[in-house]
Design a protein around this nucleic acid. Sequence first.
DNA 1: TCGCAGGCATAGAGAAAAACTATGGATGTT
DNA 2: AACATCCATAGTTTTTCTCTATGCCTGCGA
Lengths: 279, 279
Amino acid sequence: MDVRSLTYFVAVYEEQSFSLAARRCAVSQPSISAAIRQLEEHLDCQLFVRNARGVSPTAASDQIFPTAVRLIAEFGALKTIVRRPVATRPVRCAVMPGLSGERVSGFLKEAAIASPELYFELQRESSAADIMIVSEAALPEDQIFHPLWRDSYRAIAPVGHPLTMREEVTIAGFADDPVIVAHWTDAPGSPRRAFHDRGVQLARMSIAHSHQDALAMAAAGFGIAIAPSSEPLRSGLVSREIEDISVERNVGLSCARSYQLPSGLSIAVNICRLRWQSR
Amino acid sequence: MDVRSLTYFVAVYEEQSFSLAARRCAVSQPSISAAIRQLEEHLDCQLFVRNARGVSPTAASDQIFPTAVRLIAEFGALKTIVRRPVATRPVRCAVMPGLSGERVSGFLKEAAIASPELYFELQRESSAADIMIVSEAALPEDQIFHPLWRDSYRAIAPVGHPLTMREEVTIAGFADDPVIVAHWTDAPGSPRRAFHDRGVQLARMSIAHSHQDALAMAAAGFGIAIAPSSEPLRSGLVSREIEDISVERNVGLSCARSYQLPSGLSIAVNICRLRWQSR
DNA sequence: TCGCAGGCATAGAGAAAAACTATGGATGTT
DNA sequence: AACATCCATAGTTTTTCTCTATGCCTGCGA
C-alpha cells in the first residue's frame, strides 16, 4: 500500500481498463493486475468489477478516488514545500466574510499554539494581505490554496417548525417564511450567488450581524436561518440540507506563491485538515 | 519516495536519532540511513545534520514534518474510508498515573471531535484495556507505541524562591526543602525510579492528589514541586530543569498489535503529534 | 592522553517485492 | 465459427529493500 498502487488505481479508474492503465503508466498489464489485487486485499473490498471489455469502478472506488488523487498530488508536491525559514513579522490575514467564525478562530488558535511568537493583523481587505481565509471559488489567480474545510449552506429552524417535518427540504418549501442570513454578498460560492443563478427571489429576508446571531434569531422564532454547516448549532435547532440549491464550497487558506508560509501556520493547516477533512 | 520513507523520516525527526528511529520502526539502522539519504537526494536538501550523539533536524525538516505526519495519517486512514471501523463497543483506555492531565484530556478531546460516536471507559488497570496512555519505558512487550509527547520532570517553585536564583539547579540544591509530588510510584521512567537509581533520599516529601494540586501547594509556599514539563504552570511559578537527575520520557498511546485503532483515535494521535512534537 | 562507548556510514549478501514474458480462459464481435 | 479483446496466472528476471558485519568519527571518562 503505497503511492505507486494508488497511481495505478487512479489510472485504472480513469481509463476503465487495466490494459490502458498499464500503457499510461508504462508498465505491463500484469503489474496493474497485481497492484489492484493487493489494494483490494488491503482495503478488504472490491474496487473494480471485471467485465469482458474493461472494468467498471465500484462504489468503494468512487469513495476513495478523490482522496487518492489528492494524496498522489500532495506526495508529488512534497519537494516544493521545502522552504527557507521565515522572518518574524506580523502576518496580515484577510478573512472572507460569511465564514464560520468557529472554524476561523479554531484555525488561528491552532496556529497560535504551534507558534506563540506568531501574531496576526486581521483585516477585511484582501489587498496587502499575506494570507487569506477564503472560499476556493473566490481564489485570485496565482495563489496557492490549502483547503481547510468544506461546508454548505443549510436551512436551520427550531425543532417543531414545519420545515423540520418535511421529507425533503426545497427552496420552494420555505420561500414564504422569513429568511435570516448573516452575509448576503454576491461573491463566487456565496448563497446569494447560488440563489440568484437559479432565479430565486426571497420575499422576506433579515440580515443578521453574524451567523450565530442568525441562529439566535431562528431559535427565537423569527424565521429560517441559512448558515454554513460548519457553524455549531445550539440545542433546539435543526439543520436541513436544501435539496435543490447546493451552496457547497471549499474554504481554505490562500497565499501568494512567493509567500513563505510560517511553520506555525503550516502546522495549523495540517491539524485542521486532519480534524475537519478526515472521514 | 513513498510512505515508508516518510514514516522513517517522522520517526527520526521525533527521536532525533537514526538508531532509536530504527528501533521504533523495527528495522535495522542502515535501513533508516539509506531511506533518509534517498529522501534527501529526492528533495535535494539536507534533512538532518549528523552529530556525534544523534542527529538534529534542519529547517527543511521542520517544513515538511507537519505535512509528512498528515500524509502518513491519511494514507493509513484510506482503508477506514471504505470500511468504517466498528465503534460499537467502548474503548477501554488505561491511563498511567502521573501523566499530565492537560495533555491526556487534550488527546481524548481530539478523539471525541474526530469521532463523536467514540466513547471511552477510563480505567486504572492496564489489564483488559484496549489502549493505554503510557510512558514508553513502561511499554509491555508486543505493543505498538504511538508517541504523543515528551516530557521531563522539573522542579517548580514560586518566583523569588532561592531555587529560582541559582545558575544551575541540582538535586542537592533543594534536598533540604520540602518536596511536593503527585505520584510516587516506582514505575520505569518515573521520578522515583530515577531518584532511587541515584541513591537520592528526599528528607521531607508531601504527596498531592494531582500535579495541579502539587503546583498549588508550591505556589502557596509549601515547598518545591516536581511535575512534568507538560503540566501548565499558573503565573507566579517558575520551573527549572534539574541538571543532575533527568527524568525524560516519551509518553504515547500503546495498543496490542492485533487491535485495530478506531479512526478517530488514529486522527487524534496525529493531531497531537503535530501539536506537541513540531518544533 | 588514551581507550571506550555510542552513533552513523558503507559494503556485500540475502530476501522480498515488483516487473516482465508467455499463456490460458472468458466474452463479445465479425 | 473464427477472431479479437481483455484480464488472470505462472514462472523468471530485475530491482529494491533489509540485514549483518565492520569502519570511522566524536565525546566522555579514567
